[in-house]
Design a protein around this nucleic acid. Structure first.
Lengths: 344, 344
DNA sequence: CAGAGAGATGTTGACGTCAACATCTCGCGA
DNA sequence: TCGCGAGATGTTGACGTCAACATCTCTCTG
């Protein structure tokens, strides 16, 4: 005689009560529990209370896997990003998380260690497995030019700060306008020309800023000095800053982000060049520390929160309504502090 | 005679091919597809190739919802954190993401806008709905003292930097040791006493650092000046720094994080107090910018990456093996740069 | 007072996967 | 030659939820 197998308590833990259990407890059908659980209004108030009481008593929690299987929706959005360590990305992510959570979506993070084509493909592969309804890409790279990178079919995508490609809706900060404001400000103060510490070539934001810098200079008949290319890091700003400090012709520097600007400031201090007396410095981002740099940094303020919010909005519109929007541009603002002054 | 209902194409988009489709294409049973998909070895090489070819041809992707429903596992870990804007949290999150992804887990972010008891409960509620196998808490708060905050039953939890509670395994940075190193360093340089710009009371890290600061001072027979309490922000460091600058007795300051230390530096510069000539300053965190502050900041380096890695390791051990570990402590390191010197 | 209609509730089956069990084939030793 | 075991493959059903459809009970109208 064989005994029933009496299977082990649970493979994956947390096999909580199911709808059927609640239904039994409340003496209704599973469907009624489902209706209550989903907040439908075609349930009698008395019945609803009974069901709610049963739910509380049993500690019922809807099983999101079953729900997702049934509905085909995960109520989760994915975010693909390189390196969390950049200030802007963090802020954007923060806003995205909040906006998503307000809309009742959770957020799945999909990291890409290095921005190479191969890694991106890996991320997209992983993405296809991921339980998400849509994806926000924050990759700061011209990856879209590489046409063999393929997004999973039919998965809504919004791209942040890597525009120029019209295949997907995007949300972009007005990089060019920011760079223009920065350069214009320095020119207005009377500087003959403005040197540029740029971000890496592969970054879309970096090239936009660089181009706008060059264009603004050209419009004012100023000759553009050679570009110094950094990698966004404070260290690289410092090293390039030492080069600039050694050149007496340099009176104004526009760094493509605040971190590199900080490095430039340090280089100037170490070499005894006064800021803003001898050299004026402008950054980009307006990170929260910038107002306490020495001297407090003149910089271009980005509205990362707005970028994050709009991304989620655009994505969810496509996910839920099926309506696809075009690109959206977020403006910037020049914040003048004490790192800029007229040349001596 | 009734005709079959021929229902609408798909409620949630992206109804891709299922195992059944692949099975048909490869002319095998669904179970064989499942075995290939899960990498079992009891499948004939020829059959496996045929199945793989069919998968590729159809663009098959396992449906994670169905898998989760069947197995009871989501292969996802949740992270609850306040504000993404702190440098340390971000670094930790970065490491967690990487470690999780290496282990084949995705990461679900659950934000908590404000660290109040109510908000935390909301987050835990949301958590219960979330499709995660375990949770890492980065809340920097003494929330665990509030006993009515209840974690969902049977959900593995690891707590970062909020130890002192033994109910859950945790990973902690050795805050006390760090503070000791900082204070000791200043005392060794010959300072009579050390002032402290502390983090907010509610933060566990902040109170650990503060207590260790006081204890170290006491051990050396130095009297502890009154504590100045900030909120981690550069702004608050600046304001408290102005107070310190106005007091000629102040020759050494230990700030509970680098951001507040930066604010103190600014205050000193503005009031003409030399750093490190008149006042020495030490921070905590060693954020990537700190080496470019002016002067480059002496600070306590935290190994955030290690914290993140260990958290994931501990959590997954509990999730997968059911083995619960105790607390784990990550050491710190004093990095001496140029913001500290003997008193005049 | 019959019948229509609105609203509440129940029944059935399918979403895609995988564990458990059943079956089939083949090689090898007694 | 037969039987046994190992390995490959197939069949069945259940995980928890919800849409579609089926009932059932009222109320209101003409």
């Amino acid at each position: 005689m064989t005994t029933t197998t009496g299977r082990a308590p649970a493979p994956g833990r947390r096999r909580g009560p199911s709808m059927a259990d609640v239904a039994r407890e409340a003496n209704v059908s599973g469907q009624t529990v489902s209706r209550v659980s989903n907040g439908r209004d075609n349930v009698d108030a008395v019945t609803r209370d009974r069901v709610l009481a049963a739910m509380t008593k049993l500690g019922y929690r809807p099983n999101s896997a079953a729900r997702a299987l049934r509905t085909g929706r995960f109520r989760s959005i994915g975010v693909i990003m390189f390196t969390l360590s950049s200030f802007g990305n963090m802020r954007t992510l923060d806003a995205i998380t909040t906006a998503a959570s307000d809309a009742g979506y959770s957020l799945t993070l999909i990291p890409v260690p290095h921005p190479t084509k191969g890694e991106i493909s890996v991320a997209f592969d992983r993405l296809a497995d991921a339980a998400v309804d849509g994806v926000i890409l924050i990759v700061e790279a011209h990856l879209l030019d590489e046409s063999d990178v393929e997004l999973p079919d039919g998965l809504p995508v919004v791209i942040v700060d890597a525009s120029g490609d019209e295949r997907f809706p995007g949300v972009d900060t007005d990089q060019a306008h920011g760079a223009r404001l920065a350069v214009q400000h320095l020119l207005d103060l009377g500087h003959e020309s403005v040197w540029h510490v740029a971000g890496p070539e592969r970054s879309y934001s970096a090239t936009s800023r660089r181009e706008a810098w060059a264009a603004t200079l050209a419009e004012h008949g100023a000759t553009a000095p050679p570009v110094l290319e950094g990698d966004w890091s404070t260290e690289s700003g410092y090293e390039l800053g030492l080069e600039l400090a050694a050149n007496p012709a340099v009176t104004a520097v526009f760094a493509a982000n605040d971190q590199m600007a900080l490095g430039v400031l340090r280089a100037m201090h170490e070499t005894g060049r006064q800021v803003p007396g001898d050299v004026s410095v402008v950054g980009f981002d307006d990170m929260s520390e910038s107002s306490s740099f020495w001297p407090p940094l003149t910089t271009v303020h980005q509205f990362f929160g707005e970028v994050g919010r709009r991304s989620v909005e655009a994505l969810l519109r496509e996910v839920e309504v099926g309506e696809r929007r075009g690109n959206s541009v977020v403006d910037v603002e020049l914040v003048v502090r004490q790192s800029t002054a007229p040349p001596r």
